[in-house]
Design a protein around this nucleic acid. Structure first.
Lengths: 105, 105
DNA sequence: TGAGATATGTCTTAAAAAGGACATATAGTA
DNA sequence: TACTATATGTCCTTTTTAAGACATATCTCA
C-alpha cells in the first residue's frame, strides 16, 4: 500500500509541479525537450506528452526561467535549455518550502 | 522576488495537494471543516471555498483516510474528523518523497 | 526502404476543476 | 432585530487543463 501511495503522490507532484521538476532537471545540466521528456518519464513514472512539454518549455523561456540555444547535429536541430538566475531562485524557493513542510506545522 | 516565488509556490502546493495538507493538519489534532478552512487560509494564504472543502472531506472519509464523528454544541453540529492509519500512511509517503526531493536527483 | 527513435511544434476537442450561487440553521453581538 | 460568524451541504456554469491528433523532418538500424 505504501508503495502504491508513493507512486500516486510522485505522479501528482510531477503533474502539478512539472515546471519545477523540469527546472530542477535542467539545473543539473542543460537539456533539450526530448531528453527532458525521457528523463521525467523514467524518473517519475509518468507519461509526458510532447504536446504539453514543448509549449511549457517555451513558456518558461518567455517568463525568464530558461534560456535556449539551438544546436545543430547534422541536419537535426536541438533546442538546448539552460536555467537562468531567476529559474534557480524559483527552485530554491521550492526547496525552502519543502524543508519547512518536513519540519511540520 | 524570492518572497513572491514563495507565496506562489505555497499556493500551488496548497491547491494541488490540498488533501495532503488537510490530512497533515488533522494529524496534529482532530478538526472540523470550518476550522480546517480557517487554518488553511491563515497558514497558506489561499482562499478555500467551502463548496470545495466539504465534498473533499466527505471524499477523504469515503476513501478511508479520515473518520468523522458528529459533535453537538448546543443546537449546532460539528463534524469532527480524525485521521486513520491509512491517512497517516499517505502523509508518511508524502514526507518521504519530500525528503528525496531535497536530497536531489 | 521501411520502421522506430529522435526532435519540435500547433490545434481541436473532451474531461476536470474552479467559482459562485443556492440552501439551511445556530450563536453571538451591536 | 439585523448583521456577522460559525457550520455543513449541493448544484450549475464557466474556465482551465488534459488527451490526442495533425504536422514535419532527420537519424539509425535491420
Amino acid at each position: 500500500m505504501a508503495e502504491t501511495f508513493r507512486k500516486e503522490i510522485v505522479q501528482r507532484i510531477t503533474k502539478n509541479l512539472l515546471d519545477i521538476q523540469m527546472l530542477r532537471l535542467i539545473q543539473t545540466q542543460p537539456m533539450w525537450g526530448y531528453k527532458i521528456k525521457k528523463q521525467v518519464e523514467a524518473k517519475f513514472g509518468v507519461r509526458l506528452r510532447h504536446g504539453a512539454l514543448y509549449p511549457l518549455l517555451n513558456n518558461l523561456e518567455r517568463k525568464g526561467f530558461l534560456t535556449s540555444e539551438k544546436q545543430r547535429q547534422g541536419g537535426r536541430t536541438r533546442k538546448v535549455y539552460t536555467i537562468t538566475r531567476k529559474g534557480i531562485q524559483y527552485v530554491e524557493a521550492y526547496n525552502s518550502i519543502l524543508k519547512e513542510q518536513l519540519e511540520g506545522f
